[in-house]
Design a binder for these strands. Structure first.
Lengths: 352, 352
DNA sequence: CTGAAAGCGCTTACAG
DNA sequence: CTGAAAGCGCTTACAG
């Protein structure tokens, strides 16, 4: 069987317009040096034929390489959460690098705002064509996106969003709703009147995203007329010792704590504390499919993990930039990831 | 910036082997008409250079079109479950049809074994290059796969598996574990000693897959030393009336039923019954992200839906065939899908 | 402002 | 058993 030839190409357009294919190419890519008249004629024919460019041929012939930047926190000894998006990025890279797409990696330190700004500057100097980033430091991210926007460099956010910016897209969780789901999961093991502890372990002070999670959680309790007292503990020093100290204090003050919700992936740190202090009957819910978390999930110390497919976020982010830059494909401004519920029973088949 | 040229192509291989690129091409595709000696030499160079073919160029130059068959149940008035895999197939098709991949659709009737065999015959006569299918009728599927295997036509199963066949791959749930997860979800709302009703609504008599789900469910109760009596009802006539009749009977016989598990997507049918008979305090868990099921989930009549991303199964199945046929990429024999837990709270963001 | 020609890395008849 | 040449549908210098 042979390929049928229902699709028209540049050659046919050129023939109908009585011009050369070079001129058609110029119009196709909005390059200068074509008279308005020919341009108009060619555009009409393009529309008439519903011309679809052959990306295969285009990428094959093109000598241009497209450079993308991935700009996320460095994997640290404390948490390797950001390894997942990176895996997704690499998976995307493997698929498209033959087609002239290169990806440069830029990492910043979650505990160091300056490292973010330094890397942001480097990205700018590198002259990339698009950026996939985690807007962890909100104000700095805003500035960076604005600068990119001036240069017409598309930027996609993952993991958390900064609304009302000139970013091409956001790919990540609906944080409010994810807190809402977390609250539901918490309640499965709870008696009606005991206290709930919300633990927020992060050096970040803006903490824009944690507020949304917290609000989602509280909304659930309100919507269901649950009267449990909700206590909040903020822990700025993210090491185990500091976490243990804060938790010990909280348990001293509040005897009736029977459920803990950790607002990010550092739930393993709380699990370690619970394991050591042999507090067994406490419901524990947190975020993210990290190796350490899974271990505690298996042991029954963590009850549920909420996950937002970080690997997929990285993969989709790169692919969206690629589609947008190479094929001028439209990209939806917000793409919410599923709110996945991972338990001991289904973790084996979870696809990060 | 220009593409760098680190990758070697057929030209370089030909140069090093002192042959023409046509001969290299012959070796690359295991075509006949090359002396053992040249073949060996070329293969050595291919290995040495770690040659990676440029699929872009390959598909562009090739005149061959590849035809795939999708072979699944027809969407019926009773259930539109199979629309999801079909959407995935169409999404894959949209991505790869420009590259000479065509997909033919073959549907059979879930209540009619003969329709399966008739379509199977048609697929064979159509001379397709690969098949993505649901092996709903186990024995017939076995025969079909064997026949395809003789003709070296790769076959991929989705949704349910038939083990030990000559299929290229299975992409779908681990049914035992999915029943196990279902049991866990059931127990959230249960008092300790009441009865559990397992409802199996299907015209299919082999019911190979339902057995595995059932076993998973019972295992959970055993593993957790739960003494609840588990009653099983099989309903061959899949209409609402028949379902209502069987359930009424079950509730008469067993007063203490407080949880129902439906082994497939027809949980909406049970939900309708519960809604009408105003039995409110019964936990209900079933399968699949159908519009009707979601409605009952929102209303709180269904507590949980277990889902296996049927759309993704269709998409991946086609892409795996494509990778295998076009780039001779290896395909894993079994790919288990995640066991997703969908609730009222997270359904809005679920990606089928 | 426009066109002729070479080339991207393959595949495919065709000729020998 | 092997090779020279055309061509897939584009892009890219280069020349005018």
């Amino acid at each position: 069987m042979e390929k049928e030839n229902t699709h028209f190409g540049v050659k046919e357009i050129a023939r109908r317009a009585n011009v050369s294919i070079a001129t058609v190419d110029r119009v196709l890519h909005n390059r200068i040096g074509v008279s308005e008249k020919t341009k108009k004629k060619i555009n009409e024919i393009i529309k008439e034929l519903d011309y679809q460019p052959n990306i295969l041929a285009s990428r094959l012939a093109s000598k241009k390489i497209i450079t993308l930047a991935i700009f996320i926190p460095r994997v640290s000894a404390e948490t390797d959460f950001w390894d997942a998006p990176l895996r997704g990025v690499k998976r995307a890279e493997a698929e498209i690098k033959k087609y002239g797409i290169h990806i440069h990696h830029f990492f910043f330190d979650l505990n160091d705002k300056e490292s973010f700004q330094k890397q942001a500057k480097l990205i700018f100097e590198a002259g990339v064509n698009g950026v996939l980033m985690a807007p962890t430091f909100v104000d700095e991210a805003r500035q960076f996106v604005e600068a990119c926007h001036q240069e017409k460099i598309p930027v996609i956010f993952i993991d958390s969003n900064v609304p009302e910016q000139h970013n091409l897209s956001y790919i990540g969780p609906h944080l409010f709703q994810s807190g809402y789901v977390g609250a539901k999961l918490l309640t499965y093991r709870m008696k009606s009147d005991r206290k709930v502890l919300v633990v927020n372990i992060t050096a970040e002070t803006d903490a824009y995203s944690y507020i949304q999670i917290d609000e989602g959680l509280r909304s659930y309790f309100r919507d269901h007329h649950l009267k449990n007292e909700i206590i909040r503990v903020d822990i700025k020093d993210t090491d185990d010792l500091s976490v243990a100290r804060h938790l010990t204090e909280a348990f001293h003050k509040h005897e009736e704590i029977e459920a803990i919700f950790v607002t990010n992936s550092r739930v393993f740190s709380v699990a370690r504390f619970l394991q050591k202090s042999t507090k067994s009957n406490i419901a524990l819910v947190g975020y993210d499919f990290l190796q350490e978390n899974i271990q505690f999930l298996r042991e029954g110390i963590i009850d549920f993990l909420i996950c937002h497919q970080p690997e997929e976020q990285g993969y989709r982010g790169i692919m969206a930039l690629y589609q947008n830059l190479v094929m001028s494909a439209p990209v939806e401004k917000i793409h919410f990831m599923p709110i996945d519920i991972v338990t001991k029973e289904n973790e084996a088949f979870y696809q990060n």
